[in-house]
Measured scan of single mutants.
Amino acid sequence: MEVRTIKVFTTVDNINLHTQVVDMSMTYGQQFGPTYLDGADVTKIKPHNSHEGKTFYVLPNDDTLRVEAFEYYHTTDPSFLGRYMSALNHTKKWKYPQVNGLTSIKWADNNCYLATALLTLQQIELKFNPPALQDAYYRARAGEAANFCALILAYCNKTVGELGDVRETMSYLFQHANLDSCKRVLNVVCKTCGQQQTTLKGVEAVMYMGTLSYEQFKKGVQIPCTCGKQATKYLVQQESPFVMMSAPPAQYELKHGTFTCASEYTGNYQCGHYKHITSKETLYCIDGALLTKSSEYKGPITDVFYKENSYTTTIK
């Protein structure tokens, strides 16, 4: 009895394709271990004539594949690729409408935090270190965002349907971005203890939790000093293409032309909904596939993004 075979390709990165001759009487799992086709788990399936010449994702289970996976995804987590594939199996079914010149995501599976993050990423200057993220990001900007969303979920250790947080998501993504040249110098002034300067680099240099107003941050924000008295913390120097200011959701007025974009969060910790506000020729609110415009805006804002380049204080 002759062994019926077909020729397929296996890959971990969709760049390096490895030619395989597979036995049609055995499952993919018996031949390769966990195997995925377009995100779908085909591990328990036997090869079919229609699979001839198709590319299958496999887990990096030998040295060659491990090197290829690390170079593309910059992670050695053995569960990463499987999590990416199972997320992709959902995100490829989502709709990605162009809204006001940006790629958004039609609401499904509690994905409003991903839509808000995706919209924000198209408006701030950011370059990702893992080629996987950078490639998928370019495709997302062009309207094909399924891979990018699935990668975000995998890097953030999230599953489809789980509630997510924009600030946490951005923080994970910033860790995989090139923020080497970003720098922030802060000064804390206390009447009792004097003053202390701190220099922050990388992710810490672009994120701040405690106030939404970048102007206020430049002037000074009140913080408790270690001595128990009130101290003032203010920005001395900022070198970065953008800054992200966050605070627990509270009524906040966004003035046209003073910011790049913002995240609105309605609801409580267990259950809520994100919308995205962007400042173009007027203010726009993007909620999944829905767009509304207004000249002014007041609502429960939790993150505001500002364009920056270089700032030095005039406070002496």
Rank of each mutant, 00 (worst) to 15 (best):
R141I: 10
I301D: 08
G39W: 06
V166I: 00
L212Q: 02
N268Y: 11
V22Q: 07
L200K: 09
S240K: 02
K54M: 12
P78V: 13
Y84W: 06
E168I: 08
I152K: 01
N49Q: 13
Y208F: 10
C285V: 15
C285I: 15
D62G: 09
G29V: 06
G220W: 03
T159K: 15
I152D: 07
K44I: 15
F9Y: 11
A69N: 10
H276S: 00
L173G: 04
G288L: 01
D180G: 12
C261P: 00
K183M: 09
T64E: 14
H48W: 14
T258W: 00
N100S: 11
C227N: 02
I301A: 00
D303C: 05
H276L: 02
Q122I: 11
K316W: 15
M26T: 10
T312C: 08
P249I: 00
T313V: 10
L173E: 05
A150L: 06
R66I: 12
L186C: 08
T258P: 03
G288A: 06
G82I: 13
P78F: 06
M207F: 01
T266S: 13
E52H: 14
E168M: 07
Q238L: 02
L163T: 07
V160A: 05
T314G: 13
K95F: 10
G202N: 03
M1I: 10
Y234F: 08
P78W: 14
L102S: 06
E168A: 05
L179M: 01
T192Q: 13
C261T: 01
G33W: 09
G228F: 07
K46W: 14
I15N: 14
L133W: 03
P224T: 15
S279R: 04
A145E: 08
A142V: 13
Q237V: 07
E308F: 01
K255L: 08
Y311V: 00
E2G: 15
C227A: 03
R141W: 03
D38M: 12
L121Q: 10
R139D: 10
H74T: 04
A250G: 06
L118E: 00
L163D: 00
L235V: 08
N100T: 12
S171C: 15
P97H: 09
T266N: 11
F56W: 08
H51F: 01
N268K: 09
A136S: 10
G53P: 04
L59Y: 15
G202E: 09
V58F: 00
K219T: 09
D135W: 08
Q134D: 02
P47F: 03
T302H: 02
S240N: 01
G39P: 06
Y137C: 05
E52Y: 11
K298H: 13
Q98T: 12
G33S: 04
L114S: 05
Y113P: 01
I315Y: 15
T211M: 08
A136P: 02
D165K: 06
Q20R: 13
S104M: 10
Y306I: 03
E296W: 09
N100K: 15
Y311H: 06
D109M: 06
N61G: 14
Q30N: 00
T19F: 11
V42Q: 09
L235D: 00
T169W: 03
S50H: 12
T43L: 09
K183H: 08
A177K: 08
N110K: 05
Y84R: 05
L283Q: 03
C149H: 02
G220C: 03
H90T: 13
T10D: 11
L126N: 02
Q216N: 07
D135K: 08
P78M: 14
D287A: 03
F148M: 13
Y234L: 04
V188C: 08
F242R: 05
S294E: 08
S246G: 06
L118C: 07
C149T: 11
C112I: 04
P60C: 13
L88Y: 14
E215K: 08
Y72F: 09
E253Y: 11
L153V: 08
Y36A: 04
R167T: 02
Y306N: 01
K127Y: 04
N129I: 05
H276R: 01
A205Q: 02
D165S: 05
L118F: 08
Y73S: 07
C112G: 07
Q195K: 11
A40Y: 13
A40M: 13
K95E: 14
M24A: 13
D62R: 08
Y214P: 06
K255Q: 10
S213L: 01
D13E: 00
L283W: 06
A69M: 14
V206I: 10
A150H: 08
N49D: 13
Y137P: 09
N61S: 13
T266Y: 11
H90N: 08
H176K: 09
T282N: 05
M207Q: 01
T10Q: 05
K233Y: 04
L59F: 11
C261I: 00
Y306S: 02
P47G: 07
K158Y: 01
K106H: 10
